[in-house]
Design a protein around this nucleic acid. Structure first.
Length: 807
RNA sequence: GCCGGGUGGGCGGAAUUGGCAGACGCGAUGGUCUCAAACACCAUUGUCCGAAAGGAUGUGCGGGUUCAAGUCCCGCACCCGGCACCA
């Protein structure tokens, strides 16, 4: 405990804003959400992150390693309703608890930059950024279908829908049309995709793959269809324009505006009923892929542009309103979904590609591969999809019936929440002027003080109930206006916090461009893979928008990303219902901070899950005690010349230093710990087995151990450092210098193989030449035994490590 | 279905460019200490044969390249993760 006071006094971990000589590094870890105290997951991510930050500091970098809290959000609101208080009470109490735990955990954060997204001086700038997006047309309001919980009477964010159910009450979620705020992230879909090239090799492949899937780029074509009785053609998106001759019907999403427009009067009633049925359908039902096809005929026909055939127009919920154009041409022979639908409603199936597989109409299996086009006059003689598609698209483009197109699965970011505990959207609704932005000099739009039952969900935002608060004056006309009562998704807060860390007290903007230029982009971001899509994609989007506004001069916020694994127990995620939870605080009480930190780092590669049943904090503690004892046994004087010490141990020490540097650079922290253990074992042997505790090499090894251990076991490391006669703090030391001459071995083991099997091991000089090794190998008894007089065909020598004799 | 990652002792995991598979640790077994237990320390620990020396075998399965393959190539199986009625 005394070391905490020392660290607070010396502040060895604050970034130096004035220093211009040292290279800068920005070590960033995902800031915690303040629900309760820290858990094992925090224990892991912080231990890994801190190891890197401390390593960089030892290597002489000027390191920025900030901490803050993502302190807006739903749990605080729920707790406040239950306890009849304001969410701020719960939030800031938890932050204090977590801050205390983080200090106890010995993490090397720069506390002077601490921020909370729920502070008005922070969310003022979240609102300011929203307004800049709004000015650029990147924040807009539209009506659309959103997740709706019929039980709680509230809108749910996608992330609050768990397997089609409301995460709070478990009710089946349905869709409802509402007017909501969106960020136009779809404008950036292609750039978000393209710029991933720069992240390749620095971000986990898994995350890049998830983002790629989520963005969901699809290359195809738009094709225009004339519909009977309608002047305007209707456009569909398809990736298989080459199958156009096989299109036999036409399908629109029932919840797309288009469906209602196309519907003929005599089918109106049937359609209305089907639409109602679709909207009642829950997410679980709609998402199930093996569900029977449903739909209703709209009473009109579309005309196939290439062969003039009539295609009946249907509404069916297997077509999605918000992807492509909300309408498709159905080619049952070559698309499984269309075939399922055709078979359910007895619609014609026209095969236009002979692939050699069974006829789809009779087999029920659509064919999707290459083949010979039939009944497709424009595609005669073509045998590949690629060529077929190109030919049709060319044709459509030249006669104005369509064009090549790219669509994305990515949707615009629905950012408004009908919630209290978030940043209010700084917009006014004026009776005469309409939507009006709150002027910058009136920011922040502060939250009114609501508590308890005022916050309970009632279908609209709790802010709407605060009538004094909603009443405002229109800055344009001076008339009466209403405040927008929605708050922003907390992912908006966390999309720019890493920029604020560079200048947390800046008052002229969200961040000081000068400091951002110095520190950003972050060199290493560490956090959970659960944020692979939302947070990381949103942050990348924000950065690109700010780049376009000229506020930052880079397009990617995080140069490198590391995802730590999960901490699980007995093969399963920890949960209250399983009763298999492991409490971080209890583990620390039992084994100490250092042993717990060492355990999570040593357990395996950072991105692997840690099963707490498989690891041994007791073993870690044992090792730390062994290391500590070594320091206590050292009896040579401080500053003694190590070059007079035992050479064998010195070799181990210097090889360890060299290897650990490389291992830390490639973030192989578990191997670093293994190497430190080997060093301690070697030191122990030197003390017990000859040279003794007074040997200068033992002191050198012990001091090296203390410095290396400071990366992950700061308390023991400080103890050892003090015991070895040095003043605090070991964390202010620099990385030990490797004596290269000690890395040269005086003898190496040469493996001798006969037919690729090891038959002898020889101690040889490292500079032995091929001929000498060959002669030595052949002279070996065991080698001779296995050669057994047979003629030698070939001898491969890789001096000085290997000889292989082929007979 | 598409995309990404994986498969190695009883367990977690090490193995530059292809060159001694199993570093380091956990657990287990035996021993020292103790009246005893726990702790600590020492030794052994992939499997099979052997008293031992030593030998055989071994990195999911089947092939291939090579003097030499956990590593490279082809095919397959299984596991984990993501997306998914996305046209």
């Amino acid at each position: 405990e005394k070391w905490r006071a020392v660290w607070d006094e010396l502040r060895p971990f604050d970034a130096d804003e004035t220093d211009t000589t040292r290279e800068r590094r920005y070590a960033l870890t995902m800031f915690p959400y303040p629900s309760g105290d820290l858990h094992m997951g925090h224990g892991e991510v912080f231990a890994l992150h801190d190891m890197l930050a401390r390593y960089w500091r030892l290597r002489g970098y000027n390191v920025l390693n900030p901490i803050g809290w993502d302190s807006f959000g739903l749990p605080a609101e729920n707790a406040a309703i239950k306890r009849n208080e304001n969410p701020a009470t719960y939030t800031y109490d938890n932050i204090e608890t977590q801050a205390e735990s983080i200090r106890r955990y010995g993490l090397s954060f720069d506390w002077s930059r601490r921020l909370h997204t729920s502070d008005p001086q922070y969310y003022r700038w979240t609102q300011w950024l929203f307004l800049r997006f709004y000015e650029k047309g990147l924040a807009y309001r539209k009506a659309s279908y959103v997740n709706w919980c019929p039980q709680d009477q509230t809108v749910l964010a996608n992330e609050q829908v768990v397997q089609g159910q409301c995460e709070r009450c478990g009710a089946a979620v349905t869709k409802r049309e509402l007017t909501q705020w969106y960020f136009k992230i779809t404008d950036y879909a292609q750039r978000l995709l393209d710029d991933m090239d720069d992240l390749h090799g620095h971000w986990p492949e898994r995350v890049l793959s998830m983002q790629r899937n989520w963005i969901g780029r699809s290359v195809g074509a738009y094709v225009d269809f004339q519909i009977e009785g309608h002047d305007e053609p209707v456009r569909v998106f398809t990736t298989r324009a080459d199958t156009l001759y096989g299109a036999t019907f036409f399908v629109v999403a029932p919840d797309a505006k288009l469906a209602a427009q196309l519907c003929a009067p005599q089918q109106r009633a049937a359609f209305e009923e089907y639409l109602a049925q679709t909207n009642r359908a829950t997410e679980i039902e709609r998402q199930s892929t093996d569900r029977a096809k449903t739909g209703v005929w709209l009473g009109v026909d579309a005309i196939n542009p290439v062969n003039g055939e009539k295609m009946p127009v249907w509404a069916a919920d297997y077509v999605l309103a918000d992807y492509g154009t909300g309408a498709v041409m159905a080619v049952p022979a070559h698309d499984q979904r269309d075939l399922d639908f055709a078979r359910a409603f007895d619609l014609p199936v026209h095969t236009v590609i002979e692939t050699g597989e069974p006829n789809p109409e009779s087999s029920g299996i659509a064919t999707a591969g290459d083949g010979v086009y039939v009944n497709s006059p424009l595609l005669d003689g073509i045998t590949t999809k690629t060529e077929g598609i190109a030919t049709i698209v060319d044709r459509l483009t030249s006669n104005g019936g369509g064009e090549g197109a790219v669509t994305y699965r990515l949707r615009d970011w629905l950012l408004s929440r009908q919630r209290y505990w978030g940043a209010p959207i700084p917009i006014l609704h004026c009776r005469t002027c309409g939507e009006v932005a709150v002027p910058d000099d009136q920011l922040p739009v502060r939250l009114p003080d609501l508590r308890g039952a005022d916050l309970a969900p009632k279908g609209t935002s709790p802010l709407a109930a605060a009538t004094d608060w909603t009443r405002a004056t229109c800055p344009k006309c001076g008339g009466e206006a209403q405040r927008d009562t929605d708050t922003m998704d907390t992912f908006v807060d966390s999309s720019w916090y890493y920029l604020r860390y560079c200048s947390p007290d800046y008052t002229d903007g969200p961040f000081d461009p000068e400091t951002v230029r110095k520190w950003m982009p972050a060199d290493q971001y560490v956090g959970g893979v659960e944020h692979a899509i939302l947070h990381l994609l949103y942050s990348r989007f924000f950065t690109k928008v700010l780049q376009d506004m000229g506020m930052v001069d880079f397009g990617e916020p995080f140069t490198a990303l590391m995802n730590q694994g999960q901490v699980i127990n007995e093969g399963k995620a920890m949960s209250k219902s399983l009763g298999n939870g492991v409490d971080l605080g209890q583990q620390i009480d039992e084994f100490g901070v250092d042993a717990v930190r060492l355990t999570v780092v040593f357990a395996g590669p950072p991105d692997d899950d840690i099963d707490w049943a498989d690891v041994s904090p007791a073993g870690s503690l044992r090792f730390l005690q062994r290391a500590w004892r070594v320091a206590h046994e050292v009896c040579s004087d401080v500053g003694v010349d190590p070059s007079t010490g035992d050479v064998a141990l010195r070799r181990v020490t210097h090889r360890t230093i060299g290897d650990c540097a490389g291992l830390l650079d490639s973030q192989r922290f578990n191997v670093v710990v293994a190497r430190i253990m080997e060093l301690v074992n070697a030191t122990r042997k030197t003390i017990d087995g000859g040279p003794g505790a007074g040997d200068p090499a033992v002191r050198e090894a012990a001091e090296t151990t203390a410095i290396l251990l400071s990366l992950t076991a700061p308390y023991v490391a400080e103890d050892m450092w003090a015991q070895l006669g040095h003043g605090p703090s070991v964390s202010q030391q620099s990385w030990p210098t490797v004596d290269e001459s000690l890395l040269v071995e005086e003898s190496v083991v040469c493996v001798v193989q006969v037919q690729g099997k090891v038959r002898a091991k020889l101690d040889v000089a490292p500079d032995s030449d091929d001929d000498a090794l060959e002669a030595l190998a052949l002279a070996d008894d065991n080698v001779q035994r296995f050669v057994d007089g047979r003629p030698i065909r070939k001898i491969i020598v890789r001096a000085p490590k290997l000889v292989n004799i082929v007979v």
